[in-house]
Amino acid sequence: MAEACQIARKQDLPPPGGYKPIPFKRLPAKQYFSGYTMFAGYAGMTLISIYLYNLTAKRIQKNEIEMRSAKMAIYPMLLAERDREYLKQLRRNRDAEAELMRDVPGWEVGTYYGERVYKMLPPDTLVEPVFHEYYAHSSPSEWFRRAYIKMRS
């Protein structure tokens, strides 16, 4: 039995010449900039970007003023057109109300059976009606379309 187990055994030993020395020395990353240079770079980049930012801000502001100017130049014309159409629509609304309430006895247009809404104002004052009154006699689709624009803008 002992003869059968005769295997050549080899002891695990260091390589010839011994193990390599363990690399325990610090290897810091390569420094491209010193601390002062980095502070200076930060300050320099910030200054340059502030300069560029101001250039862009001025350009944007100038363009905004120009656009506002263009809008204000055509505003009187748009307002004049709007006023005319608005007054036409007010007359249409009043006529529609008179037609609608024709058969109701004691009904006066623009009042609740003769009771005015704004009692202290002179009778000829034009009080601009609110949205729902202005669109009361129009078709619902027009109402919703305008309300949608109003909400979006």
Binding site: M77, L87, V109, G110, D124, T125, E133
Partner: peptide, 21 residues
């Protein structure tokens, strides 16, 4: 509506001019 018959509104013919289209 708030507009009574006392409020003078201009006629439609007064308001109709050629518009900028």
């Amino acid at each position: 509506m708030v507009l009574t018959n006392d409020v003078v509104l201009p006629e439609e013919s007064e308001l109709t001019v050629e518009e900028v289209n």
